[in-house]
Design a protein around this nucleic acid. Structure first.
Lengths: 245, 245
DNA sequence: AGTCTTATGTAACAGAATGCAACAAAATCG
DNA sequence: CGATTTTGTTGCATTCTGTTACATAAGACT
């Protein structure tokens, strides 16, 4: 599965930030939210693999939200709360939560539970869904995201390093959109452990771009695909077609 | 679903009796067991919807049993233990338990959790035929967890060492998820002993990975299955299908 | 145009991560 | 116990990636 996307719902900004940051450091994409409206907009809009839901949300009630979501959607929910008395926990399970964690919690324990719930979801999903592999085509080139294979228009296989592959993926996801070096760097790290995206010298991306150009541009000195936007960053300047893998 | 059949595994007769009676009073069929052998005979023989597994079983280790069952069978497991410290709980989740309950517990809470896990299982499994034994297929290869047999796409049997088998199991359980060396090592051991898993040289996993590659990769120099995530660890980069065992 | 300033390209280097062969230690088996 | 297999350790080769320094290109301003 791809990187898990976790919706963190808490009305206390400090708590919310703590949790999102921790999850991000441990390889998830954490989406902050503080109200039912925000939760719904996320669930309607993009993919969300799990919801961490605080029980007390100011004037809203987490248990109530959980109950409603359970009826409408099939997304795993872990309740988080300062109320740890047994009957409180049972209420959590009663409204259909997949797990219930008492605050304050050990972050590693939270992570363990998140993983447990996710792997359960994954386990069952693998039996039903079929992962459709993605492949891309651009200007005669093709890139198979599954195998990581890159084929030139002449069907010659080109080997990209890990970082070069990541860059290509970022570009393919954003064709015709100029990206700053910061944006590129931020999106490159999404693989596994998110590093501190503190780019020391700032030129790393330039060099990386140069290396990718050497591999996929017909004439690296006069790039047709990966163009420079002076003063801004770089653009992938051709159309990208997404095809079945 | 019919009345749930729950396997209660505890070597303390008093505890076992208390739990089975409580579960029976609350509408389940409770099957007592006190050792891994008994567990297996039940799982092989009749239908079992869930296992309540004590962590300390005299000279046997509940965590170890859990880990083995997880690989071979697809039955929900709730660990039960007097050890409630956070890291103990994490160990429980780490070996794949669906939940972890500390003794002494409120019987009603136990019931709530049992119901939660069961409803989860029901939700996901209702559409598919329920199977007990596990076998896997990936890229033409097959692995039968029960017999430990590995067959190449050409149906040639390959012999893996114990450690190589363990590594393969860890990978099959986490396809497409980058695993750090620490995560791999932790999941390889779980001998129940000190979870310190102090990897002395840290390179043991690298070598192990290399050895497995030599056996299951078409071209070990250019791995298609067991790929390196530089700076992170390793990934099993193909889809894994669980098939009838 | 000519010059200055800044941004980008890139070769060379360095440090780190990984692959791997060879050896050593440990476990297994008879 | 010795023979065999498995597993961990070590050292070196290779690959990858960021940094640096300098070359080149693009504007900006006289």
């Amino acid at each position: 599965m791809a990187i898990p996307r976790i919706l963190v719902v808490d009305d206390d900004p400090e708590m919310r930030q703590m949790m999102t940051q921790f999850l991000r450091r441990n390889g998830s994409i954490a989406l902050p939210a503080s109200s039912e409206i925000e939760v719904r907009s996320h669930l309607d809009g993009g993919r969300v693999d799990m919801v961490l839901l605080d029980v007390m949300l100011g004037d809203e009630n987490g248990l109530e939200i959980c109950r409603r979501l359970r009826v409408e959607q099939d997304v795993p929910i872990i309740m988080v709360s300062a109320l740890s008395a047994d009957h409180q926990r049972m209420e959590g399970y009663a409204v259909g939560a997949d797990d219930y964690i008492a605050k304050p919690f050990n972050p590693d324990l939270l992570l363990a539970r998140v993983k447990a719930v996710l792997s359960r979801t994954r386990r069952s999903a693998s039996l039903v869904h079929r992962r459709n592999t993605k492949a891309f085509e651009f200007n005669g080139w093709s890139y198979d995201a599954k195998s990581g294979e890159v084929l030139s228009p002449a069907k010659v296989q080109v080997t990209l390093s890990r970082r070069e592959t990541a860059l290509l993926q970022v570009l393919l996801a954003n064709p015709h959109i100029p990206l700053t070096r910061e944006e590129i760097a931020a999106n490159l790290d999404v693989t596994g452990e998110a590093q501190t995206s503190a780019e020391a010298s700032g030129r790393a991306i330039d060099v990386l771009v140069g290396r990718l150009r050497n591999k996929i541009e017909h004439n690296p000195k006069d790039p047709q695909l990966l163009k420079t936007e002076r003063g801004v960053g770089y653009v992938f300047a051709v159309d990208v077609a997404e095809v079945e893998g």
